[in-house]
Amino acid sequence: MSATFLYYPGCSMDGSARAYASSLEVVCRVLGIDLHEIDDWNCCGASEYVSLSQAKAHALVGRNLALAEQQRNGSSTLVAPCSLCYVNLAKTDHYMRKDRGLAASVNAALEAGGLAYTPGAVKVRHLFEVIVEEIGLDAVHAAVTRPLAGLTVAPYLGCLVTRPDYDGRWASKEHPVAFDRLLASLGAEVVDFPLRTDCCGGHMTQISPDTGFELIRRLVDAADRLGADMLVTLCPMCQMNVDAYQGEMNRHFHTHHHMPILFFTQLMGLAFGATASELGFGSEVVSARHALGRIGIEVPVAEPPPDATDGPPVRPRREKKPQGLPMPVMPDETEAVR
């Protein structure tokens, strides 16, 4: 059985999220998913373009939708692996369907590039939705040859798969369990992660780092407390924020969290029997080698020594005194304590 979809990779797939791209290739091969990359797609604008100009932001996304419509081949489902790309594509299509004025102005702009888009011509879906709904958990489970028994994972969806949810596909927009079920079908132990749809900070790590670090701290702290070995995500931006900025977050709060965050396709690939290096393991900044070593999976050694990736050594904090305020201590009292 083979399922064909149009595919919009998004910029991070050949940048910071290469592990997502290589593991997705393995997953598609095993599950018989055929992804047709849209030729010459452009950036979706992230959350930046729409902050400067709505008309241009929708025209930018409109070009991708128009190319997808032109390149339809049996499937009109456009799959995006990145949550932000997914929402941007879905949003422009949604508003072009709802707002005739917008549809007309986007098409007037597209005309300058010799393109046109019929609102609703493609159906935009997140990769994760397609795997769960079109391929199905039974097929996923049937492909498992190396169950991830012994691995405890915190399912972290982030915001944009279930919100804003333009087509009303998600009954629960805050505590959906589909991602938990997918990971459980791989044999992993899944903790009930209350922050599964909380924000990773988005572009806050850039424009207001303190705000971003607090959001990252909440996620890794909760996952730590629940005894998770790792967070599992389906969004390159969530992965990048929690992974690459975890060291700086630790310095900011004087914490020592070590919570790897991996893409769900990497775990699927492992469960399907692929090797760790095929799946891009080792490219995470917060190494998952220890967590995976415990279930007998060897992660290739990354170039820099592992301790160098955790940021420079944090200056050890002075021991806190048991009392709230610094009180004078008599010499004989210190003796007594010793």
């Binding site: 241009k56 930018l60 409109g62 070009r63 007037a108 702009a109 300058a112 393109l115």
Partner: peptide, 10 residues
């Protein structure tokens, strides 16, 4: 082409 589209949108 993309620049032309964005210029027209502007």
């Amino acid at each position: 082409g993309l620049r032309a589209i964005l210029a027209r949108a502007e």
